Computed example of a mutant assay.
Amino acid sequence: MSSATWLYRAFEVSQIVVILLYCLFRHISCLEGYWIESTSLRNYQPDSKLVSTTASSHYACMMQCLMTDGCCFISYVTVNSTCVRHLGMGNVQSQESSSVWYIINDDNCPCGWHRFEASCFLFTNIYMTWNDSVAYCRILDARLAEADSKKKDSFIRGIAATTSGSFWLGGSDSDQENTWLWTASNLSMTKYDNWAPTNPNNYGGQGENADCICIGSWLKFYWDDCNCWEEQAPVCEKPVI
């Protein structure tokens, strides 16, 4: 190993030691959790920038995040040493040589996600069509949430009801009218559903093919069939880490 390589390795180790010491003296959550890279977000960068600075490495960027109230994750661009600290997940855009690192909480979910049983859920506040929501969750190594049991549905509705938002779930009958499926798992809804009274009704019986499930305050977060081109916020779901 060359002297330059040895010095770089020693520098990386020193950055980790500094992070751990900072956590120790501040008594913050990095002693309970850890960092993990989102491989699906390589060469992407979320637009939810909290603050942007420079840092000598992604380890140094992590330390900056830990010293920033509300910072949940970082994106680090190696070509120009840009360290972006993020409050929460927003939309994503292409960014060459960028990597994204999450703080994993002690419940084994990324910072900003909510755990229920063996899944982590992200309730976003960015509005897009149902198809774009499917693609968005996929970039996060997730799927649109599937409320396939009474307990999970109650959990999703409970958190959704604390917001002023409206949300997409992962159910659709776009392949065959009136045959509703959880599309990511290809499971039918014969065992459980939670439609609002008179739903599904093709957008209030106006003759439109409202093929995607949404929830919102207008029906007390019971299921509604909405036009897939409408814009709601995706609820993403992925297994615990």
Rank of each mutant, 00 (worst) to 15 (best):
E230F: 10
G204Q: 14
S75H: 06
W180D: 00
Y76V: 00
T124I: 01
G205E: 12
Y22K: 13
S56R: 01
G70Q: 02
N131Q: 12
N125T: 14
W130R: 12
C228G: 12
R42H: 03
W223C: 06
F123Y: 14
Y203E: 10
S40F: 07
I241H: 03
A147Q: 09
S185D: 11
S94N: 10
C214T: 10
A161F: 09
L140V: 02
Y127L: 14
R85F: 00
T198A: 02
K151L: 05
G112M: 10
S98A: 15
S188Y: 05
S174E: 01
L41I: 11
V100I: 10
N43Y: 08
C236L: 09
A184K: 08
L122K: 12
Q15C: 03
T183D: 13
S56V: 01
S119N: 14
F123N: 01
L7G: 05
Q95T: 07
K49Y: 08
S217G: 03
W101H: 06
N202F: 11
A142K: 00
S164T: 12
E208H: 14
A55T: 08
F167A: 07
P197K: 05
T190A: 14
D224N: 15
I28G: 04
F73G: 13
H86G: 04
N209S: 07
N209T: 05
Y44T: 09
S98F: 05
P110T: 00
S94L: 12
A10H: 13
T68M: 07
Q93S: 01
C72L: 08
R157L: 07
S52Y: 02
A233C: 13
L144T: 07
A4V: 15
N43E: 09
Q64Y: 10
R115G: 00
M89L: 09
I126W: 04
S56Y: 00
D141K: 04
H114P: 11
T129L: 02
N43L: 08
E230N: 15
N194Y: 05
F221R: 05
S56Q: 04
S52N: 12
E177N: 04
E96V: 13
T162Q: 15
Q206L: 14
H86W: 04
V77C: 07
Q232D: 11
Q206C: 13
A118K: 02
V51M: 02
I28H: 07
I241N: 03
S217W: 04
C83G: 07
S172W: 03
N105T: 15
H27F: 13
R85H: 01
T5K: 15
S2C: 09
R9W: 04
G170H: 08
